[in-house]
């Protein structure tokens, strides 16, 4: 008897990162869509749909980092130092777009265009390097004596650059479908028009990543294509196809929350696919969650808090979204 702490923590961290993708994905997506919307009022509406919640969304990324350090300090130290440059670039991107939320509205008139650019570029850079980090993570890291032993630029590979672009597509789908919920009129129509090609593009991206990963990593191919796994895991690609079709269908007529929820489901499928490929490793290609685990005293101490507090966090986060529910209108502020 006893709780299997490394497994519980792997699940909590996976959940935290999933929450991050779910929540910050759409607000980064709004920045990614900025170049496709020129009108200032429309841009204001876009930013206003996330202004009250973006900070909470980003906190899941901090939780990811902190929980990783608490539960798997070895993974935290190796992965983060291996991904030094892409993570610094991601953070710098997040700085530009984070302050742009505030500064766009408080800038002198001739500064405003600059902060719009900062918001868009920051979102692109943060997302791209998040995707690059993900790709580099899947590729695995050179480790010797419990420390990263690779080079400063090992993270640059065709695959990681592709996942960087892929994540831009994924977040822009979340952004456009989120805006379908929160806006109306011409802006909403524009988002519906954009969401269609983005959905198809995302399907292509998922397809390429799904083929490229097992092709490049025999262990992952083994995981997916051996019997009985191939049967057990076959619902994942099937569901991907079905949900893509459902997104396209829900974009017809008068879409509301449908496309966004389906897009989340699609990303969840992709995410679980990654989980299947990696399990039980936390530092690919071969350091498992058990080998990287913190002492049980650390995992247990933090677990007590996490299990009590995360449900409370989810409750008041939901409340905050409830307070700011409904369509955001042009010129409407919250004060």
């Amino acid at each position: 008897m006893g709780i299997d702490l490394p497994v519980v923590w792997a699940v909590i961290i996976a959940f935290g990162l999933m929450m991050y993708v779910v929540m910050d994905g759409f607000d980064l997506g709004i920045g990614i869509l900025f170049p496709f919307v020129r009108n200032r009022e429309d841009r204001d509406v876009m930013v206003n749909t996330v202004a009250p919640v973006w900070d909470g969304n980003e906190t899941w990324l901090v939780l990811g980092g902190a929980a990783l350090m608490a539960a798997f300090p070895l993974a935290y130290s190796i992965i983060l130092s291996a991904l030094y440059l892409p993570l610094v670039l991601m953070l710098l991107g997040l700085i530009w777009r984070g302050v742009a939320f505030e500064f766009r509205f408080k800038a002198d008139p001739h500064h405003r265009a600059f902060w719009d650019q900062a918001f868009a570029w920051g979102s692109y850079i943060a997302t791209f390097f998040q995707g690059v980090s993900l790709g580099a993570f899947l590729n695995g890291f050179a480790v010797e004596n419990n420390a990263y032993a690779g080079g400063t630029l090992d993270w640059i590979t065709p695959f990681s650059l592709f996942t960087g672009v892929g994540l831009l597509v994924a977040y822009s789908l979340l952004g456009s479908t989120w805006l379908i919920i929160k806006t109306e009129g011409a802006l909403q129509a524009r988002m519906v028009t954009l969401a269609r090609p983005i959905t198809l593009l995302l399907l292509v991206v998922i397809g390429i990543v799904s083929l490229w990963t097992p092709f490049a990593h025999p262990a992952i191919a083994e995981r997916w294509f051996s019997f009985p796994n191939i049967v057990l895991f076959s619902p994942v690609p099937v569901l991907v196809l079905i949900s893509t079709w459902l997104i396209l269908r829900s974009l017809q007529g008068e879409p509301h929350a449908g496309p966004f929820l389906l897009a989340l489901f699609l990303l969840f499928l992709g995410y679980s696919g990654l989980g299947i490929s990696l399990w039980p490793n936390i530092i690919p290609p071969d350091i498992s969650i058990r080998a990287a685990a913190a002492p049980p005293q650390s995992m247990g101490f933090t677990l007590v808090g996490a299990l009590f507090i995360i449900p409370i966090i989810l409750a008041y986060t939901a409340w905050s979204y409830y307070v700011f529910r409904g369509k955001v209108k042009v010129g409407e502020g919250y004060h």
Partner: peptide, 27 residues
């Protein structure tokens, strides 16, 4: 993130103490 990117030996050595405290701060 800087504890891990820049001070990885410190983090793998003492992350079992500073990590949970930071995690509680986030939570």
């Amino acid at each position: 993130y800087q504890f891990g990117t820049n001070w990885s030996y410190f983090s793998s050595f003492a992350g079992s103490v500073t990590g949970p405290l930071l995690a509680y701060e986030v939570l």
